[in-house]
Computed example of a mutant assay.
Amino acid sequence: MFKYVIFDVDGTILDTEKAILISLQKVLKEEGKDYQLADLRFALGIPGKETLRRLNVMDVDRVHPKWSETILEFSHEVSVFQDLEDVIKTLAESPARTGIVTSKTKKELIDEFEPFGLSSFFEYTICASDTEKHKPHPDPLLACLDGINANKDETIYIGDSTYDMQCANSAGVKFALALWGSKTTEGFESADFVLKEPKDILDLIKM
């Protein structure tokens, strides 16, 4: 049984894929760079500034806020994955302690996650603004573990990207793949658990 359940946000709690990729494509086009959506999928799961650096965007500090604002134009495309809200509320009523480790900045978390009213169900949150190094480096997850005084052996990190899995592995905690977000198990052969639907999360605290 796991006593500490840590969540990623994008692709794990929120279905943000379409909003992230379309807004990125739009901003890049305005910057004179044309990309197909498929070529931008690598952006899912890493901080926005890192994405822009990998795309060789010259003025990252100018373009990143522009992208964050553009994502809000597509907020109608973002939703909580089906049944996940009920699972999160059930976890909050259980003895398990919960946290969030996300690549969103603090402002992005406020603008894009808090409107769904789920923040209060999590005891501790680490965002990209809180650590110098980011996923797949273990620092964000380790910071969250420290924040809730968690035992690594009793902790599970739930995410949808290889960055999440690498972060968990490096931090020495178990990793559960959110299949509803990743949509594939390819590349996740070393995941400790594959969760087919949100309610499977509850089995992790009953083991």
Rank of each mutant, 00 (worst) to 15 (best):
G172A: 01
E77L: 14
I22G: 11
D164Q: 03
L142Y: 05
E69Y: 07
K104G: 06
A171N: 02
K174L: 08
L118E: 01
S75E: 14
T12V: 10
D153G: 14
E186P: 06
G45H: 00
G117E: 05
T98Y: 08
Y35A: 15
I110W: 11
M207L: 15
I13S: 08
L28Q: 10
K199W: 09
E30T: 14
F42M: 03
P136G: 08
L177M: 07
H134F: 06
K199Y: 12
D15Q: 13
V27Y: 03
R54V: 12
S79W: 04
D146G: 09
V27P: 04
K66Q: 13
S23N: 08
E154A: 11
L28E: 11
T16F: 13
V57N: 05
T155P: 10
D139S: 07
S75G: 14
E186K: 07
L141E: 00
T105D: 02
G187P: 04
E17D: 13
P115C: 12
T155S: 09
S23G: 11
E123Y: 03
D164M: 08
L91S: 02
V87F: 06
A96I: 08
F122Y: 04
K18E: 14
D8R: 01
L142E: 10
L202A: 09
H64T: 11
I88G: 08
W180K: 04
D61V: 10
D160P: 03
A176Y: 02
E77F: 06
E85L: 05
A128T: 02
D83H: 13
P95I: 08
E154S: 13
E186F: 04
I205E: 02
Q166N: 14
M58L: 15
E50T: 10
V101M: 03
D164E: 01
K199F: 15
I158M: 07
F116C: 07
I46V: 12
W67F: 14
F193Y: 15
D15I: 14
E186Y: 05
D130V: 04
E197W: 01
E30M: 09
E154T: 12
F113M: 06
I110H: 13
E123P: 02
S161L: 00
D130L: 02
D130H: 03
M1K: 14
T125E: 03
H76G: 14
D203S: 15
E77G: 14
D111L: 09
E85Q: 10
D34R: 05
L141A: 07
L142V: 13
A168N: 02
I148V: 15
I13C: 07
K66V: 08
K49E: 06
G45Y: 01
S68F: 09
S75R: 10
L37P: 14
P47A: 02
D160F: 05
V27E: 00
N151C: 15
S129T: 11
C144V: 07
